[in-house]
Design a protein around this nucleic acid. Structure first.
Lengths: 221, 221
DNA sequence: ACCTGAACACCGTTCAAGT
DNA sequence: ACCTGAACACCGTTCAAGT
């Protein structure tokens, strides 16, 4: 439909049109023929500039990863900062569902997390964690955050569930704990669960500052 | 190539052939035409028995989810049992990469976890957790496990990384903590990280028993 | 009820030919 | 160097026709 400004078809123009196509109509809409129509060129011209479909997707995904990977530091305690980084990353991933779908499919969701690693390392150090233990902390958080986002996406794509949590946790299955059954029958508050989980992980893996007077939590690495 | 035993093409036979095709050659190999050739029938016969490709995939995935979702209880402390369930589920997912790829694509990885929910509820109760807090625990573990598996898959599908952790954490970036840099430059031991993370989450969210008499030397893997 | 082939409307990719 | 149309080898799906 929309014909691009003609003349001098460039690699950049192709990528831009491809990105727009994906953003507006989803990854499936990105076919070589449709893209060519959008650009007002022959299908084969695209091959000259960016190569085949795989190469085009590679370039598109690389672009997205670089853009969304940017991370800016926050303030607060180490725990708060880690949660902040996690939430920022999650938001960016959720704000571009179609482009990120491509990133997921190509297995590069993880790759996007690399810039955030540095921030996490700082927080680990600030909390007194070093060496292999710090590395483990960084990776645990990384897997946790990316994993959560992938699960959310998985849930959103899921068709109608077939027992489904609602039926599975109906009145009689509840047994001795109706409050739990009610909670599990409700849809998940993913934002809340996300923060809870990240916080729980951080609290277990990061040495906690003395803070409360009651009992000394070990400050030793 | 391999022609099925002819006569009386059934829905079951179609599903079985489709499953074998996916298992042996991956989801991309499952085309209507190839499947028909494998069965020794006309392409259109498949449409009569199972409907179009989407319906076929639905049936296939439903089947896989039901098979892999089975869960058998283990022994030990609540923490050990939760970790046991988590590991069992992870193993099953990793043992059938091709079929599970279909499950992932259709957004049903999560659905497979439903049977395990009951086990987790028991453990939550055994540890003295009830109501909404127990529900939160169950879901946190669920997201954690499924998320980890999805991340692992994501990593495996990823092409060559482009800074890549190795370069990113080369000698000079390390700064004050060369041990950490070395650890992050090494490939991840996903099994170990998985157990560490699940354990960390459980320890944060599950009320811990008094246990040791002297003092809890926590966090030590 | 079950199976068929032909046909339709799509794909991605290649290639010889143009300027 | 850049762009083109024609052609190839695939797709999933529909449909009228067979038994």
């Amino acid at each position: 439909m929309t014909i691009e400004a003609r003349g001098a078809l460039s690699r950049e123009a192709v990528l831009e049109a491809a990105a727009r196509l994906v953003k507006e109509h989803g990854p499936d809409a990105l076919t070589m023929r449709r893209l060519a129509a959008e650009l007002g060129t022959a299908v084969t011209s695209i091959y000259w500039h960016v190569g085949g479909r795989e190469a085009l997707l590679d370039a598109l995904v690389e672009r997205t990863v670089a853009e969304l990977g940017e991370i800016r530091p926050c303030a607060g305690t180490p725990e708060q900062r880690v949660v902040g980084v996690a939430r920022a990353l999650r938001r960016q991933l959720r704000d571009h569902p179609h482009l990120v779908a491509l990133v997921h499919e190509r297995g590069l969701t993880e790759r996007m997390f690399l810039p955030a690693q540095q921030v996490l390392v700082c927080e680990a150090h600030a909390a007194g964690l070093r060496g292999a233990r710090a590395a483990e902390f960084v990776r645990a958080v990384q897997f946790q955050v990316v994993g959560h986002v992938l699960v959310e996406r998985n849930r959103e794509r899921a068709p109608v569930q077939h027992p489904g949590e609602e039926e599975l946790w109906g009145a009689e299955t509840a047994g001795a704990d109706p409050a739990l059954a009610r909670a599990l029958a409700r849809p998940v508050d993913t934002e809340r669960l996300f923060v809870t989980s990240v916080r729980a992980l951080v609290r277990s893996l990061l040495p906690q500052p003395p803070a409360m007077p009651t009992r000394p939590a070990d400050a030793a690495g």
